[in-house]
Design a protein around this nucleic acid. Structure first.
Length: 492
RNA sequence: GCCCCCAUCGUCUAGCGGCCCAGGACGUGGCCCUCUCAAGGCCAAAACAGGGGUUCGAGUCCCCUUGGGGGCACCA
């Protein structure tokens, strides 16, 4: 792979939530830039004022920040090629559109949207391809310019050649030939003075020195038009890479709003901010999405730095990928296990606080090693460890009756264990385990029965971190007190 | 309807003409470990969409069919 520093960009439109697809569209160009010691840019393509969503840009920035995808130039930090918000670059597009008119590659069009709509309907009725009918294509350039400057509403369209073919290249798919006759006179500058994607993106990519355009495959069909535009301006072409779309988990059809809603029911989400709320960590999310469309032969568990070291655009795959949430859970759990005790403690602490619990730092640090390998998401810390931070527990009497023990038997077991533990100066795995196992033998029971009763009595739940370690953390006093309470419950 | 793209286990993928009776990962099943739940270890089932070519030889190259996806806006 080549190591020349590249300039890449993530150019989202602030029209919705940041999801899986957006995250990957940002990740790959970021990795390529970092891999080559190049530059990664954030550009906001907000030229559609109708679909503009307030707050969307901030969500994008927050999402990138959370994931650790840093950019070197962007709307909030500036840079040498700014501004990085397209609505702040109107003049630039206006100039370029008219430059194309002057060069004979574009023309002003005064057709009303109303009339165009009718033409399109008529064409579809006749089973023809819907396309611009060419009304303004032959207008006298000087006359057209005068009408435009006089204030008449106009758009500027690309003057697509009627004959011949265009050749364009996608890095993953190779050369793509297209008949010009199949292409339309696309609108480049809208009547509100803002550019369409085609003009805006090509102009900015050129002006910002983008060397590798990595974008969604929905742009593949307009690649020939973009090639035309770039050549009409006489610019150097960047390398184009089109990423495949994400399919719904079943693999049938692309991810839609409906699937997004179903994922939520399931405790999953395709939205970055929601994944954060659900207890996923950036390391897990990143590892998950980076592999959807990138083939690595082995060692799939990677940190961002690993990804940067190994990333190669050539290994991206052009075929669509079905979203697999089970794999996200796997990577999340794996990366949680990779965190240091201090780091994991800091990350789960907010979940206890959110639950209204008071968290003692020293205790938390001792609890973390006990639950680390049990967590799939951060919020799993609650069912396993919330009880450590409560003053008392409320065991379900039915759960004290482990595997067919009668209340009397359970009370007996608890009583004997209580006596043993009461005789210990401190309760630790080293002091408590041997005598309690002796008890198991003496009573002719299974270890699970005796420890089960104690587990429910002490932790208030039938599933918990390891018993002896847990008892050590809450201390002898609370352990004895809770066992006594359980015995009382069994007696009534 | 027209144009474009894609096609290996259920899923993500390795494979870039012989190293492949196809490898890894997730998931699934079994076993081991075990105080619950996990984690971990071992094992297993599981795929080259179909048909034609090219070649001494094809998962790998070409064509067709089928299937899937995307696009055809003064949206990106």
């Amino acid at each position: 792979m080549e190591h020349k520093p590249v300039r890449t960009r993530f150019a989202p439109s602030p029209t919705g939530r940041m999801h899986l697809g957006s995250a990957r569209s940002a990740l790959y160009p970021f990795l390529l830039a970092r891999r080559t010691g190049g530059t990664f840019i954030l550009r906001i393509e907000d030229t559609d004022q109708k679909r503009f969503v307030p707050g969307a840009e901030q969500e994008l920035i927050d999402g990138l920040h959370w994931l650790g995808i840093t950019y070197d130039e962007g709307p909030d930090i500036g840079g040498p090629c700014g501004p990085y918000r397209q609505t702040e670059r109107r003049e630039i597009y206006h100039q370029h559109a008219w430059e194309l008119v002057a060069r004979g590659h574009a023309f002003p069009c005064f057709c009303s949207p109303d009339r165009l709509g009718k033409v399109r309907q008529e064409q579809m009725r006749n089973k023809q391809n819907p396309r611009y009918d060419g009304t303004c294509r032959g207008l006298d350039p000087d006359l057209a310019r005068r009408r435009a400057t006089a204030g008449e509403k106009y758009v500027i369209r690309f003057k697509m050649p009627k004959e011949g073919t265009v050749q364009a290249t996608d890095l993953l798919r190779g050369s793509i030939q297209t008949e010009n006759a199949a292409l339309d006179d696309a609108v480049l500058l809208k009547s509100d003075g803002l550019p369409t994607y085609h003009l805006g993106a090509m102009v900015d990519d050129h002006l910002m020195g983008i060397t590798h355009v990595i974008r969604g495959s929905e742009w593949l069909p307009s690649l020939p038009l973009h090639a035309h535009l770039i050549r009409a301006f006489g610019w150097e072409e960047p390398a184009f890479v089109h990423l495949s779309v994400f399919l719904k988990p079943s693999g049938k059809g692309k991810m839609s709003k409906r699937e997004a809603a179903e994922a939520i029911q399931d405790g999953h989400s395709i939205f970055v901010s929601e994944m954060q709320d659900l207890g996923y960590i950036p390391e897990g999310v990143l590892n998950w999405i980076v592999l959807m469309g990138w083939g690595v032969p082995e060692d799939e568990v990677m940190t961002l730095d690993d990804m940067i070291a190994r990333f190669d655009v050539q290994n991206l795959t052009p075929s669509p990928a079905a979203v697999n949430f089970a794999k996200l859970d796997h990577f999340n759990g794996t990366h949680i296990r990779l965190l240091s005790t201090e780091d994991l403690a800091a990350r789960i602490k907010p979940y206890f606080i959110r639950e209204g619990l008071t968290v003692d730092e020293a205790t938390l640090l001792r609890v973390v090693p006990l639950i680390r390998e049990r967590l799939v998401t951060l919020d799993d810390c609650l069912p396993f460890a919330a009880w450590f931070f409560r003053d008392s527990v409320n065991p379900d009497p039915a759960e004290l009756l482990i595997k067919g023990l009668t209340p009397a038997q359970a009370a007996d077991v608890a009583g004997r264990a209580q006596a043993i533990l009461a005789g210990l100066p401190v309760i630790t795995p080293a002091t408590a385990e041997a005598p309690l196992r002796q008890l198991v033998d003496d009573l002719g029971l299974k270890a699970g029965q005796v420890f089960g009763v104690l587990r429910v009595a002490v932790t208030g739940q039938s599933v918990s971190p390891p018993l002896f370690e847990s008892m050590e953390i809450i201390g002898r006093e609370k352990v004895l007190e809770r066992i006594a309470r359980a015995i009382a419950m069994l007696g009534s």
